[in-house]
């Protein structure tokens, strides 16, 4: 299911302002790649380029290429791209007027699937994957605001998984959650990597070190260094990485 994602010389702009400078990196299949860096470093913009969400903002533009399974995502229809690359956001953003079930089914219905048994099968599977099933199986048709924020975030993960993407992007998924919910999301990421290529943006260095197979550090729109967390955190090659990790940066 998971496929590696290859980024070549990616630059991103808001109007005349450049946000990302020629980023190239590979996010291998069935691994967790964490993106770290101070706020404003371009982490979110980077991942928003991967599913072509960046270009939906007015005046936003990007250059370079992103390859998934030998296909350049920038030459595909954005809708197909977003079907292959799922995304979970900083704050839980379930559709407020829909039920738990309908939130997870939303992507399936968009894609024209009408068969009820396929939909409920897929909804259950996705909720199982995001380890939310046991908590919501009796309240599938309740409004989403009955869920806790942590549950809502796992619901958003289930929503993204329901259309079976190859890549799952999580943009600081735990940054607005309590520590316990945050830990749950972290465990979930570990479980999910056997099925998906995972890209996790985080500002929490411990978390990055714990779950990552590969870590990349962004500073001021540039990819400064990438490598296994063991290397990057203990023997940084770049002076700027060292400065950032020891807190001497920004």
């Amino acid at each position: 299911m998971g496929k590696s994602l290859v980024v070549e010389s990616l630059s991103a702009f808001y109007g005349k302002q450049q946000i990302l400078y020629h980023v190239s990196m590979t996010m291998p299949e069935h691994q967790v790649t964490t993106i770290i860096g101070p706020s404003g470093a371009g982490k979110s913009t980077f991942v928003r380029c991967l599913n072509r969400l960046h270009e939906t903002t007015p005046n936003a533009r990007m250059e370079g290429s992103v390859w998934l399974d030998h296909q350049n995502l920038y030459e595909l229809d954005p809708i197909i791209v977003r079907r292959k690359v799922g995304m979970v956001f900083q704050a839980p953003n379930p559709f407020p007027t829909r039920t738990v079930f309908e939130n997870v089914a939303a992507g399936l219905r968009l894609n024209g699937i009408r068969n009820k048994s396929i939909i409920s099968e897929q909804v259950e599977k996705s909720l199982q994957l995001s380890s939310l099933w046991d908590e919501v199986k009796n309240s599938l048709h309740q409004p989403v605001w009955n869920l806790t924020r942590g549950q809502q975030q796992r619901l958003c993960i289930a929503r993204a998984l329901a259309i079976e993407p190859s890549v799952l992007i999580l943009d600081e998924p735990a940054s607005t959650l309590d520590p316990l919910s945050s830990l749950k999301i972290e465990e979930l990421v570990e479980e999910l990597k056997s099925h998906y290529t995972i890209v996790l943006v985080t500002h929490n260095l411990q978390q990055a070190a714990r779950v990552a197979d590969l870590t990349a550090l962004f500073l001021d729109g540039e990819l400064v260094e990438q490598g296994s967390p063991a290397e990057l955190f203990t023997r940084p090659k770049d002076k700027r990485t060292e400065d950032y990790l020891t807190g001497r940066f920004g």
Partner: peptide, 15 residues
């Protein structure tokens, strides 16, 4: 309408 809600729909592939 909050942008992150709209992004949620777009990220699912909504037109």
């Amino acid at each position: 309408v909050p942008q992150d809600l709209q992004d949620g729909a777009i990220a699912l592939g909504a037109t």
